[in-house]
Amino acid sequence: MSHAEVILIIKLNNRDFPWEEGLTIEKIMQIKKFTFPKIIVKVNGNHIEKEDYAETFVNDGDNVEIIHLLAGG
């Protein structure tokens, strides 16, 4: 396998998600169009506050949870 074909991944809500250089929580939110306001974010079990989304870099192999709280009705 050539280097170019290696895909690095993180876990996002226990599903594979492609990692890229400079990936932040904010960028994941943009890619996934996560716009719901009541969201809980954890990286490897540690809570990340909203004001830190842009500065929180995600590394290859990290376990990211972006939990949307139930709504509707």
């Binding site: 809500n13 226990n14 599903r15 996560f34 719901f36 949870e65 972006i66 939990i67 949307h68 709280l69 139930l70 709504a71 509707g72 009705g73």
Partner: peptide, 30 residues
Amino acid sequence: QHDEAWLIFMDMVNNQIPTFEDKAEALHYY
């Protein structure tokens, strides 16, 4: 009518109830 259970985020987005048993528990509790 969704007033019994609205589980879309828990299931589709959060992936918190992946097994049939997990889903059944949510479809009991909520």
